[in-house]
């Protein structure tokens, strides 16, 4: 156990899939050669194959008793897509090509299925899921590393790959059931989200959270009693880990999505108990606790609709942006 565990709650009812988090992370940490295909943070449309494609089918994580790792496959590089330069020079300045395009096809990229909906119109459904390393309490990557290059910091529980120690065996790539460890083909090392520890050490929220215009990422320590994380995860229980059955005990939690009501065959609205996103699908993402979480969310929303107070809704509204990051009186120098 670490002294403290840093955590994040991502409210899927506010995420608009704008990829600001993706861009913020990319500019800060993965803009070097060898990192073109890496998105330590990505946003994907669910249901859908995601990034890398079909990551949920790749195995990894812990067995059911939590005593050993399940086998995992190495996610193929081409299933990530990548940032590819365009032929600007040839078209615009040399006049040697006529159509502006990527220098080579990118394949099915990281966000290929953006807004690709499931089900039939008008009862179709989809939503956006931002993903980053879960900085798990039981990290499968750490367990799998043959040279102990992966460690979990005592002070904050951040899981890191020591770039000096990593030998590039890629066992972590296979073991992570979320496919959130990447292999740098230039340096020959595995790399992943560092939860912006240099920022965190200075009291600054990670770039993906600090730069989220949707105000939907709460950051803090799990242990901070009555902090937003504690309230959403432990008290209200509306924030749930993604795929808890993988057994790694993630520390990124999600408020599950509520979409608008469906229509019956005459075009009338259908009642809440038959939601647009099938419960089965939500259970497959967030586990069996998602039912209770949605009931709580609905009950609290209804309070507001009828003019009553709701602490939970106020928390999620986050009138004060800085309240997302632990304490209300954040100073800006």
């Amino acid at each position: 156990m670490t002294d403290k565990q840093v955590a994040m709650v991502i409210d899927l009812n506010k995420c608009i899939g704008c990829q600001a988090c993706t861009a913020a992370c990319k500019s800060l940490w993965t803009d070097e050669p060898g990192q073109e295909y890496m998105l330590w943070n990505n946003v994907e449309t669910k249901p859908g194959p995601g990034y890398p494609r079909y990551w949920e089918d790749g195995g990894g994580g812990w067995n059911e008793t939590g005593t050993g790792l399940k086998p995992g496959v190495l996610p193929p590089k081409e299933d990530h897509g990548e940032e590819i330069a365009l032929n600007h020079q040839a078209v615009y300045f040399d006049g040697t090509e006529t159509r502006l395009q990527q220098e080579r096809p990118m394949g099915k990229g990281a966000n290929w299925d953006e807004d690709t909906s499931s089900g039939d119109y008008p009862n179709n459904y989809h939503f956006y899921v931002p993903r980053l390393c879960n900085h798990c309490t039981k990290p499968a990557c750490l367990e799998a590393c043959p040279v102990r290059a992966i460690y979990k910091r005592e002070a904050d529980g951040i899981v890191l790959v020591d770039q000096d120690t990593c030998q590039g065996f890629r066992e972590c790539n296979k073991a992570c059931p979320y496919d959130k460890v990447y292999f740098n083909y230039m340096s020959g090392k595995s790399q992943k989200c560092i939860f912006c520890f240099p920022r965190l050490e200075e009291g600054v929220a990670p770039a993906c959270a600090r730069q989220c215009p949707g105000r939907l990422r709460f950051v803090g320590f799990l242990e901070d009693a009555n902090g937003p994380i504690d309230k959403l995860v432990n008290q209200w229980r509306v924030a749930l880990p993604l795929h808890p059955e993988y057994g790694t005990e993630p520390n990124i939690f999600y408020v599950p999505p509520i979409l608008p009501p469906k229509f019956d065959d005459k075009g009338n609205f259908v009642a809440d108990d038959d939601p647009r996103v099938p419960m089965e699908y939500l259970r497959s993402l967030f586990g069996p606790k998602v039912d209770a979480a949605l009931i709580t969310l609905h009950e609290e929303m209804e309070k507001k609709q009828t003019g009553q107070n709701s602490e939970l809704m106020d928390l999620l509204i986050a009138k004060e942006w800085k309240s997302l990051f632990g304490i209300p009186d954040v100073k800006v120098a």
Binding site: E201, A205, K322
Partner: peptide
């Protein structure tokens, strides 16, 4: 820093 700080997390810095 000309940026956002929040004290409760910074305690973790460099420690141990």
């Amino acid at each position: 820093l000309l940026t956002l700080r929040y004290g409760s997390l910074s305690a973790a810095g460099h420690a141990g």
